[in-house]
Design a protein around this nucleic acid. Structure first.
Length: 678
DNA sequence: CGTAGGATAAACATAT
DNA sequence: AATATGTTTATCCTAC
């Protein structure tokens, strides 16, 4: 213990002083290098981007069509609603009717003209705009619900009267009551569906698409959604505003709010908004405030200016100093239609982010609740890591109470050392300072790594929880997820930082460990090519070292089997998710979504591998094995080679089109820098 | 208690 | 010269 603490302080110190600087520098260089190599071999990356873009376009198209349909259906429904025969029929579209009908009926919603007035009078801060938008949408929804409900009530009463005239049949009354109930439920559903619709739009194109699970949350980092999709969105808005203005048709705009509002009758109502919005007054008070004033107050904290670059969405113009930025802001982003439209989009973006956040919070809560409850059940045993994870996640979920979570009830085979493990599990604050933690669950639970990553992808990305797998497993996973089943060291680094928040700190430590593992384990094969060297996985070697852990412990085998059990639905979920994305299950690397596809194949592989070791006679004949068999290792290390394996027919040398890397690296680096300082 | 595997640290070598 | 990349050794920890 003494030794440990001594070692850790020492290593922490070195990690902070040397590691953070040199390590980060390393990654930055890596990112640059990646960028270059991407230029040469962007096949997969472009594929993903194209896919995202296509989906975005699809989302836009869907949105436009739906908006048109709404209007028609609204009219239809106004006529048909007297029928009242099939309230279920409305389930398909109710949420979509909200904006239009609201816009049609509500006089208090801000019209585009008013919006422009607001924008022309002063530049609102993003927060204010956001509030404005929220108020608008809340108001619209509220009003629409009221109207809708009122209308239904009228219809119901009408029908009641009719029925009473026709004869008081209890059956019908019952039916009417049921219908009334159904309508009320509908009203609730409308709200939910509207959210879902927005979310689906968001998922399909507006924001970064994250594969893996059907309900996978999006990248919570604001930077995560900025790059291509938003740029594209901005372009669209920018090019669309002219048409929008001249024709009055909003087909080209994704902005639902814009569309809804502008289709409303022009109203002269004042800007009175949701009464419960406390910032409202602030908004109007702030009205006379000029942007220059706020600039003078906070010359260097302008939200639209940072790192010498104009942060106006889609702009990124370089402004050497603040005055030149101001000049640029006033000239390039004046109060014209384009800026207004962009502003609207930004509002929408912010709102969707908030929706997403709310939903994710909810999901987190449900997850934690679920895990808490389930923790007493034996079924939860195969995934004890989640429990630990939940605890540490509590830092991001303020509403969660860490002490309410079970500590280690489900980790009988991994007793936590009171000294080393205790603090790292209990609180996250200690987690941050605890430095390198030696203990780990490693792969001993035989939870298939890829399925765990798939299931907890977003979690690992955001919570600084150490993944319960060995470096070797993680490296292997990284390599297998790559389309070419090979990665450079730097790409492996990037995968680590991309997939796990935990590895965004102490870079020197874990990178050293990665290198160490790569060199040490025979299962990692270094393949040299023109551009340098890539690492591949010798699957045979990797499998060789797995059984020994499993063999001795029957309970582990049990766990493994149960893990197989719970992985089957996961696989189904993945398939469903892929079907949703029109990604065939068995074409993995070639598709634009490498992570998803490879995850699936890796899962199958893991399952098959696990079953192999469990039942030696179970040589699964499913096609799932094939993708792995395709990875024939090329031995470079000075090991006696099996004649079979010596020939690597694979495209290990064709590095020409790989490197599916992202530009997240810089972001993570920034984080790492910040966090290492603390 | 011994052993094996993993994590971490660090020294060293080599390539860029 | 500095950094990135690999290799190797040592030590500690944990599970078995």
């Amino acid at each position: 213990m003494m030794q440990e603490s001594g070692t850790e302080t020492k290593t922490n110190g070195s990690a902070i002083q040397n590691g953070s600087s040199s390590g980060n520098h390393l990654l930055e260089c890596g990112a640059l290098r990646e960028g270059r190599s991407n230029g040469e071999a962007p096949a997969v990356d472009l594929g993903a981007a194209d896919l995202a873009h296509a989906q975005q376009q699809q989302a836009l198209q869907v949105a436009r069509q739906l908006l048109l349909q709404q209007q028609q259906q609204q009219q239809q429904q106004q006529q048909q609603v007297s029928g009242l025969k099939s309230p279920k029929r409305n389930d398909k579209q109710p949420a979509l009717q909200v904006p239009v009908s609201v816009a049609m009926m509500t006089p208090q919603v801000i019209t585009p003209q008013q919006m422009q007035q607001i924008l022309q009078q002063q530049v609102l801060s993003p927060q204010q705009l956001q509030v404005l938008l929220q108020q608008q949408q809340a108001l619209m929804l509220q009003q629409q619900l009221q109207e809708f409900y009122k209308k239904q009530q009228e219809q119901l009463q009408l029908q009641l009267l009719q029925q009473q005239h026709a004869g008081k049949q209890p059956k019908e009354q019952q039916q009417v009551a049921t219908q009334q109930l159904a309508f009320q439920q509908q009203l609730l559903q409308m709200q939910q569906l509207q959210q879902q619709h927005l979310l689906s739009l968001q998922r399909q194109g507006l924001l970064t698409i994250q594969p893996g699970q059907p309900a996978l949350p999006l990248q919570p980092l604001p930077q995560g959604m900025i790059p291509t999709e938003l740029q594209q969105l901005w372009k669209e808005v920018t090019s669309a505003h002219t048409a929008e203005e001249t024709t009055g048709n909003n087909h080209s705009s994704l902005d639902l709010t814009t569309t809804c509002v502008s289709s409303s009758a022009p109203s002269k109502t004042s800007l009175i908004m949701n009464p419960h919005a406390s910032t409202n007054g602030q908004l109007s008070v702030h009205t006379p405030k000029r942007e220059s004033m706020s600039h003078e107050e906070h010359p260097h904290s302008h939200p639209l200016y940072g790192h010498g670059v104009c942060k106006w969405p889609g702009c990124e113009a370089v402004c050497e100093d603040f005055p030149s930025f101001l000049k640029h802001l006033n000239s390039e982003h004046a109060l014209d239609d384009r800026s207004t439209a962009q502003c609207r989009v930004q509002m929408q973006v912010v709102q969707q982010l908030e929706l997403q956040l709310a939903k994710d919070k909810e999901r987190l809560q449900a997850m934690m609740t679920h895990l808490h409850v389930k923790s007493t059940e034996p079924k939860a045993a195969p995934q004890p890591l989640n429990l630990v994870s939940s605890v540490t996640l509590s830092k991001s979920a303020s509403e969660a109470s860490p002490q309410s979570l079970p500590h280690t009830p489900t980790t009988p085979t991994a007793p936590l050392t009171p000294v080393t493990q205790g603090p790292s599990v209990i609180t996250t604050t200690s987690m941050h300072t605890v430095g390198p933690i030696r203990r780990r669950y490693s792969d001993k639970y035989n939870v298939p790594i890829s399925s765990d990553i798939a299931q907890n992808q977003e979690f690992y990305k955001n919570a600084e929880v150490r993944p319960p797998f060995t470096y070797a497993s993680l490296i292997r996973q990284a390599i297998l997820e790559s389309p070419e089943k090979q990665l450079t060291l730097n790409e492996i680094y990037n995968w680590f930082t991309r997939m796990f928040a935990y590895f965004r700190r102490n870079a020197a430590t874990w990178k050293n460990a990665v290198r160490h593992n790569l060199s040490l384990h025979k299962c990692f094969v270094r393949v040299e090519n023109v551009k340098g060297a890539v690492w591949t996985v010798d699957e045979v070697e990797f499998q060789k070292r797995r059984p020994q852990k499993i063999s001795g412990n029957p309970s582990l085998i049990k766990n493994m089997q149960s893990s197989h059990a719970y992985c089957t639905p996961l696989n189904a979920a993945l398939q469903a998710s892929m079907a949703e994305n029109s990604i065939p299950l068995y074409t993995t690397a070639s598709m634009g979504n490498p992570t998803l596809g490879n995850l699936a194949s890796a899962i199958r592989e893991e399952l098959n591998g696990a079953m192999e070791h469990t039942n030696s006679n179970e040589s699964d004949s499913s096609p799932g094995r094939s993708p792995m068999q395709a990875v024939h290792p090329v031995h470079v290390k000075e090991e006696p080679l099996d004649p079979e394996e010596a020939e690597g027919p694979l495209s290990l040398v064709t590095t020409a089109n790989h490197s599916p890397d992202f530009d997240h690296d810089r972001d993570y680096e920034d984080e790492a820098v910040n966090e290492d300082i603390e």
